[in-house]
Design a protein around this nucleic acid. Structure first.
Lengths: 186, 186
DNA sequence: GTCTATACGAAGATAGAC
DNA sequence: GTCTATCTTCGTATAGAC
């Protein structure tokens, strides 16, 4: 159910996704909705957000494994380009969907904020490890995250992966310059 | 009604906003909904998107009037920071809300794409005027737009204007370097 | 733990009077 | 052009049996 919820949130948003949709998509038994999620849709949305945040965070950490922030930015962006192109630009980021859709309670919004903060932190850690100062690293991490998430929205609206391609190129340049500039002169 | 719709879309998303909400917020007569919008919610959402796109586009063009892209980026971001802070981070960009919420038909999504394209073009034109090459200008304009829109989402999720402040600073640096680097050496 | 049935309300949309 | 009334569908949530 949670996996299906994440997929449907990505396509239709939170308010646009009903339990009936989730049950149909997941094939889950209908009687178990309020058994597993006694808090109703709010609780369900929070769980979906946590799950999606962890999943995407895992992908991001995987991309960051080589301690090469430039390659990680490109790899993370390429992952999203693949998602967008294979799904005809119908599906975006579930965490953004939660953040933009205020229908559920404030807990859901906070869960989205936590996910973003975790991703940002993962990025900043690697930048610091590559010699970038802490403040700049945090600032750059926010730019990368905002840029990619914003570009995903643009891609969906325009039915094209071009915005994300352009943003990925610019971000790679900026991050590359920051890493190079912070390294001790050879 | 359209003005109210834009405000409510910003706060609750498209699926989360009903005609009853719009009527209550705007004080418009109830009988006139399907008189003015025979196409129902789809048509209404498209009109709201066009209106909001024009409004925000006007603000952006105003910020760009001095032909100073760096100041324009800061000014545009500051406008959003003001909106976020004065509204307790409840309201974001209505065009993003439309792009993320697939509930209405494809026409709405296209209207959002048109708005983004127009803003991007406004930005790129000024960059070109300042000597930036056409491809780079387009690429930078996409980065600025994606970065700011993405940061607005992060701000809402985290209940803070910090992401947008950081992104605005980074974008100002990048745009400043591009403009400076493209000017003929003095 | 899952099922059926259903209460309750809300939303989109339409009809016809004024 | 606006109003009231209403139809229909859908969505959340609950109750109680298996």
């Amino acid at each position: 159910m949670i996996r299906s919820g994440a997929q449907l949130f990505r396509e239709r948003g939170v308010s646009g996704t009903s339990f009936a949709d989730v049950l149909e998509h997941s094939g889950a038994p209908r009687g178990s909705v309020y058994h597993h999620f006694p808090g109703g849709k709010d609780e369900f949305a929070i769980e979906v957000t946590r799950y999606a945040g962890g999943l995407i965070g895992g992908a991001l950490r995987g991309a960051l494994e080589g301690d090469d922030p430039v390659a990680a930015v490109r790899s993370f962006a390429d992952m999203w380009i693949g998602v967008l192109e294979s799904g005809e630009y119908a599906a975006g980021c579930p965490v953004v969907a939660v953040a933009v859709d205020a229908a559920p309670g404030p807990g859901t919004r906070a869960a989205a904020g936590d996910a973003f903060a975790a991703w940002e932190s993962d990025l900043a850690v690697v930048l610091v490890r590559r010699g970038v100062g802490e403040d700049r690293a945090r600032s750059l991490a926010t730019l990368v995250l905002s840029g990619i998430e914003g570009a995903i929205v643009l891609c969906r609206a325009q039915g094209s992966a071009e915005p994300l391609r352009r943003v990925a190129g610019e971000l790679a340049t900026v991050v590359g310059a920051a890493v190079a500039g912070s390294r001790p002169p050879a």
